[in-house]
């Protein structure tokens, strides 16, 4: 079971933003999140991964308490079984594509790294550095880095942006296969409603930081 109840306020000179999430769901679902830019999707992911601390609330995943602000319990990102594809598809710029995958999961053998790269049509680029890759290629490579460590929760922030239709379908297929094999709970933030419908058990919208998903999911 995934139980999330949290609040986070961000004040700046330009605007005041409040994230307010109430979410209880069975595990192993694929949940799509839509919403306008700045609605709080990425902030929600950052809090879930442990990169940003909420002001209040609780996060419980499969009976593991990740965060309870009232009781001063807080697991660092390293202590959470959670992978995260950043919106900007971050990679390590001093490492080649293959070295990035290897660094993401140091237990992988060279042939396993090559196998992963082939899945998203990146094998030929294995010795290239991230700066030499296009936005779409970086996105696919960063997705592989997210999936090579099987975790309870996977957060994918705009995994289909910068991809052509063919690459989008490859990514959809990879996410589906990964979900069937490892059964994680996957959150996907995207503006591409069509793909979310195709991939997710449920799709919901964050509006001005407010996300409410009932127990019935």
């Amino acid at each position: 079971m995934i139980e999330i109840e949290l609040k986070k306020t961000r004040k700046s000179s330009k605007h005041h933003f409040q994230l307010d999430v109430n979410l209880i769901t069975a595990p192993q679902k694929i949940i799509g999140l839509t919403g306008a830019s700045g609605s709080g999707k990425s902030t929600f992911f950052k809090i879930l991964s442990g990169l940003v601390r909420p002001d209040s609330g609780t996060i419980k995943v499969n009976n593991h308490l990740w965060c309870n602000i009232d009781h001063k319990k807080y697991k660092k990102p390293q202590q959470r079984s959670c992978s995260y594809l950043f919106q900007e598809a971050t990679m390590f710029t001093h490492l080649t594509l293959a070295q990035n995958i290897q660094f993401a999961n140091t237990k992988l053998t060279i042939s396993e790294v090559q196998h992963w790269l082939s899945k998203l049509d990146l094998f030929e680029l294995r010795n290239q550095y991230p700066n030499a890759l296009s936005g779409g290629q970086q996105k696919r490579a960063a997705l592989i880095m997210t999936l090579v460590n099987p975790t309870d929760v996977i957060l994918l922030d705009e995994p289909f942006s910068a991809l052509d239709e063919e690459a989008q379908q490859l990514v959809v297929k990879l996410i589906k296969t990964h979900h069937q094999q490892h059964q994680p709970t996957i959150f996907i933030a995207s503006h591409n409603i069509e793909i979310l419908k195709q991939l997710c058990h449920v799709t919901t919208t964050i509006t001005h930081g407010k996300l409410d998903i009932p127990l019935t999911l």
Binding site: C82, Y84, F86, F92, F103, M145
Partner: peptide
Amino acid sequence: SMVALAKVLGKSNWTIFWKVILPN
């Protein structure tokens, strides 16, 4: 972002220093 990525990949602060911060 690279440091944050290393954290979500489960790398220790020691590994992040030697393998990410120092080489950059």
